[in-house]
Design a protein around this nucleic acid. Structure first.
Lengths: 351, 351
DNA sequence: TGTTCCAATGACAACGATGACATGCCTCGA
DNA sequence: TCGAGGCATGTCATCGTTGTCATTGGAACA
């Protein structure tokens, strides 16, 4: 029961009394169209409310004004801001943005990127599961930009934070407040970013002359649901930590309620990744702000630069986006006097 | 320098020694292909790592396995979870999900939906700026599902919370704790959801025999950046409120730091929309949990039902997704003794 | 044995746009 | 005055796939 069919270029051409090709030329801003003709065609397009068919266009022209974005999962606050910022920039530039989550599955990630290429996306922005997750894929000359995590792909470029450096600063911040038993809560070290943050942290410990204690390293928190157990176990150690670092926003958001639950909000805590309520908590949370907004914006710019016609001279060096430490209180708590743990470390929940 | 060209159906056909059409039949699971032939073709496809071209497909077939999603802005935590849940369900069902933000601009919203239709999306899910934002659009028979807010469009269906009822419950919750001066902080009432929540709130006030005071209604908080001023002004009133309601998640997240800032965390507060840190704050935040996850899931299911071949008997009645009140403390604070305001209500910030 | 019918396959056009190339006309310089 | 050259426009084929219709060969039936 559709009242009108979609107008196509032929209809425009007929109404303007020109050939289809001329109408096409107007559509593509071909300079070799007489002003008067152009006006007639534009008028016809307006009259018919014509919109070009992207499928036909991309089939014939072999390219499409769309960009694919692959992230771990859009539910995450960090990822959501990252994506929001990418989307905002690219859609202003006239690109349609296709967003899909890999759910941290490498094969899914590969399939998604392949599909984007099949769809003739002009380029893709990927937050890769692992640095080699795209290696070996047949992608033609599809421009690839990795974001938040370095990735490997011929001709690609990565836009990241200085994970090693920031983690080192974070570690130093805690040691300089007198801590010597600092636990790190993270997801798997197969994620490049996470690995770098561990390395930076270890470096900071070494700088402070602190010997490495594997009991304080929890790299088994795949998501926030693992955090509670990890925290419980850390505080059940003979020598529990006096300070904590969480290596990403999602885990940081998990650590706070877990600390409340075990009644150890007197533990120094430094979050990797700032989040909305951080300054309203008691204590307010000290955080490394590796701004997802800026990261996304720069990733988008980087991709746009590669989409410009003659962009062959582009660099493939990783771009490091600056970030800083926001001091709010939780990261400056002093170590509480070392108490040998004797009883179970699960105090009643505060009401 | 691309090593291989993408394999196309012709290559498959040649390798399997059949016609292109037969290969196409295999691709589309046409039953009238001899098992042996089918096997040969499948083998060739595997051999060549063939993947069909979505552009050509959708051009010819007039449809595409993709679904468009339009939301206000993916940066928002509520929206992010909503989208995550939609995306997850639809991509499991084999659809490519296209997500775009309207940035609360009706004309942008319309343009995006038009574009989705041009791209031959199988359907769209829209969180509309206003209920009539799509009215009059030429969309053929594109299935439309509205989410979180009722929308108007011929044949569409909306998946929403019971905004009126929930707001009424929220209001009643506060009045039953003795509050009589309750302020409501919201975005514009041009948003259908917001309007309904105001209505429910007013109903609760009426139920409690409380006379309406326009000074306590702030529907001018377009986003979180307006909240601080609104809160300041509310507490500068001669008779400041003893309780607050915020009508959406984003604003709720803005209210908490604002209350901290003015040192009035003894004000009862009820958030519309739960958020991550709610239970770790002091006081913990009582919230209406109109689960974005469930909302998204049901919206996705609703759309999928309409995408099934013979789905003409579908209902257009709004679907109401249940939600509940999570009691945590902030919503149960008693009114503090009515103090006539004399000094400015901006105490020094707590360090 | 001849006719019918169906299963399996293929030839061809078409979807809507653009690239390569051709054409006609007008201007300009010799 | 004529040819070269450039501008404006048109013709035709093509992108990769699928719908329509035709064709083939054999099984089933009278």
């Amino acid at each position: 029961m559709k009242s009108h069919k979609e107008p196509i270029l032929r209809d425009v051409a007929m109404m303007a009394e020109v050939s289809i090709k001329t109408a096409s030329r107007v559509l593509n801003n071909d300079p070799s169209v007489a002003p008067l003709t152009r006006a007639k065609v534009l008028e016809a397009m307006r009259e018919l409310d014509y919109r070009p068919d992207p499928a036909a266009r991309s089939l014939r022209a072999g390219r499409d004004r769309s960009v694919g974005v692959v992230v771990e999962g859009i539910g995450d606050v960090f990822v959501a801001s990252l994506v929001a910022s990418i989307e905002s920039r690219l859609s202003d530039a006239g690109y349609q943005v296709l967003i899909t989550s890999s759910h941290r599955d490498v094969s899914r990630e590969r399939a998604i990127v392949q599909d984007f290429q099949q769809r003739r996306c002009a380029g893709v922005i990927v937050m890769p599961c692992t640095e080699d997750s795209l290696v070996g894929l047949r992608l033609g000359d599809l421009p690839v930009v990795f974001v938040d995590r370095v990735g490997e792909f011929p001709g690609s470029q990565s836009v990241v934070s200085d994970d090693f450096g920031l983690a080192r600063i974070a570690g130093k911040h805690l040691t300089s407040h007198g801590h010597r038993r600092i636990a790190i809560v993270s997801d798997s070290q197969s994620v490049p970013t996470t690995r770098d943050r561990h390395a930076g942290f270890r470096q900071a410990m070494e700088d402070g002359g602190i010997t490495f204690d594997p009991d304080l390293v929890r790299d088994d928190c795949l998501d926030e649901s693992y955090v509670r157990d990890a925290i419980n176990q850390l505080f059940a150690l003979d020598q529990p930590p006096t300070a904590l670092i969480a290596t990403n926003t999602r885990l940081s958001i998990g650590v706070v309620p877990a600390l409340h639950l075990v009644g150890r909000t007197d533990t120094a805590f430094l979050a990797f990744g700032d989040f909305p309520m951080a300054e309203s908590l008691t204590p307010a949370i000290t955080a490394i702000d590796h701004s997802p907004h800026r990261l996304g914006q720069i990733a988008a710019e980087t991709l746009l630069a590669r989409l410009k016609p003659g962009a062959l001279d582009v660099s493939t060096e990783p771009i490091v986006v600056p970030a800083g430490l926001i001091v709010r209180g939780s990261g400056e708590l002093p170590p509480r006097p070392t108490t040998q743990n004797s009883s179970a470390a699960i105090p009643a929940r505060a009401t």
